[in-house]
Amino acid sequence: MTGTQTAAVAETAAPAAAETTEDGYNFAYLDEQTKRMIRRCILKAVAVPGYQVPFGGREMPLPYGWGTGGMQVTASIIGANDTLKVIDQGADDTTNAVNIRRFFARTADVETTETTGEASIIQTRHRVPEDPMTEDQILVLQVPQPEPLRSLEPREIECRKMHAYKEYGLMQVSLYEDIARFGEIATSYSYPVMVNDRYLMSPTPIPKFDNPKLDSYPALQLYGAGREKRIYAIPPYTKVKSLDFDDHPFQVQQWEENCALCGAEDTFLDEVILDDRGGKMYVCSDSHYCARRRAEGHSGKLSGSAAAAYAAAVGADQPEKGA
């Protein structure tokens, strides 16, 4: 225990001093004991890819469901020399991403960045970056519901048995039902995957567009579910297969249009409503990727000045703005 922590504890009796305790928190908020406990769980998760390791999740100063699992994982692995990038929906400037980045800048005083290549840790909600990651980087995903079987089987005890015995027939039945009813598998995000041919895993609500990236990914993927108190992992270069049928193979989303700002043809696009008469355009959801391409001279159908005005309005115009 550090001296500053003692001070924070001693101040419990003096609430007037509460605002000063902010500086009394340990590096990256969690105490070292807790971080060690979480790191042990992470090691176990890495050793058994896709298996959900229960952990003694702590109450974080951000609400459950807002990334407390990812934050605890990040807090446990981050060091003073790390560079952190935080994205939500693929963008660095969404409120929740800003808020979590602010939290670590404040409690761990680490460098932050918006550039995928510069980050040693990227914490994300709902997206995997478009730019490839490397073996030197770690991707931390925030998980609202770790249990891929939950929608089919609400009982935790039964779900754990199904994983232990590798009884995944029911999951396949749900895909069968989709095809029977809709002619295709009607799951567009949180699309279930088999990890290392053994554990069924929810890749969190990333769009299925991102699923293929998870397979043989060079970076370590860590998944943290705070409310449900589970950690799981996919080690680098692990086989990750999206469930499908031989005659209805897994497919990702495709757009008929390209990014209106940078012209990218192969990224996940967000639909931007332009007016109330059905006018819309599509732009990259990965704000850093889009900005980098534009800096490199790529452009989309939106004219140069309009694109610049739009980018300025949503704060996606500074590819190098960093911490």
Binding site: P63, Y64, G65, W66, Q89, N96, S188, I206, D270
Partner: peptide
């Protein structure tokens, strides 16, 4: 409270997927 209110966070990537 956290999980109910997390619905206020942006979900537009998943919503886009559902639109598609």
């Amino acid at each position: 409270s956290g999980f109910v209110q997390h619905l206020k966070l942006p979900h537009y990537v998943d919503f886009q997927s559902e639109l598609q």
